[in-house]
Computed example of a mutant assay.
Amino acid sequence: MAPDPVPTPGPASAQLRQTRYFTWEEVAQRSGREKERWLVIDRKVYNISDFSRRHPGGSRVISHYAGQDATDPFVAFHINKGLVRKYMNSLLIGELAPEQPSFEPTKNGIFA
């Protein structure tokens, strides 16, 4: 008896795995002045627009970092990062484009 063939992924499953890339400029445009809010943690881009109202630390805390790299405050304020990252998966919308620096260009390269 021949083994069952391995299913070939269709266009929908390939689309789910495709990573979207963003620039710092695109992230900065979602700084909370409008309805949409994004932030970056470890080069991953998260849409916190709806979540900010449910953030356990308060919406003002997380919204303060909208449009910016929030890696340092994330590390400082979240003791159980594994637990928190589990909830962050639903907010993940992409990553910084490979050609983008790891630090925000407007921060004078202090992390370079």
Rank of each mutant, 00 (worst) to 15 (best):
M1L: 15
M1G: 15
A2F: 09
A2Q: 13
P3C: 12
D4Q: 14
P5W: 07
V6E: 11
T8P: 06
P9Y: 10
G10K: 05
P11S: 12
S13E: 15
A14K: 15
Q15Y: 10
L16P: 02
R17Y: 10
T19V: 14
T19N: 06
R20C: 06
W24T: 03
E25I: 04
E26G: 00
E26I: 00
A28T: 04
Q29K: 13
Q29Y: 04
R30S: 02
S31R: 02
S31F: 01
G32H: 00
R33Y: 03
E34Y: 03
E34W: 04
K35P: 02
L39G: 00
L39S: 01
V40Y: 00
I41P: 00
R43A: 06
R43D: 04
K44L: 12
V45W: 00
N47I: 03
N47A: 09
N47Q: 09
H55I: 02
H55N: 14
H55Y: 11
P56W: 05
P56C: 11
G58F: 07
R60W: 07
R60H: 13
R60E: 15
S63L: 08
H64R: 15
G67M: 03
Q68G: 08
D69A: 10
A70N: 08
P73I: 10
F74K: 00
V75W: 15
H78V: 07
H78P: 02
I79F: 09
I79G: 01
G82R: 14
L83N: 08
L83C: 11
R85W: 04
K86I: 10
K86E: 15
Y87S: 13
Y87R: 10
M88P: 01
N89Y: 10
L91M: 08
L91S: 02
I93F: 12
G94K: 03
E95D: 07
A97H: 09
A97P: 02
P98N: 11
E99S: 12
E99I: 06
P101R: 12
S102C: 07
F103H: 10
P105S: 04
P105I: 03
P105L: 06
K107I: 04
N108F: 01
F111Q: 10
F111M: 05
F111D: 11
F111V: 06
A112C: 02
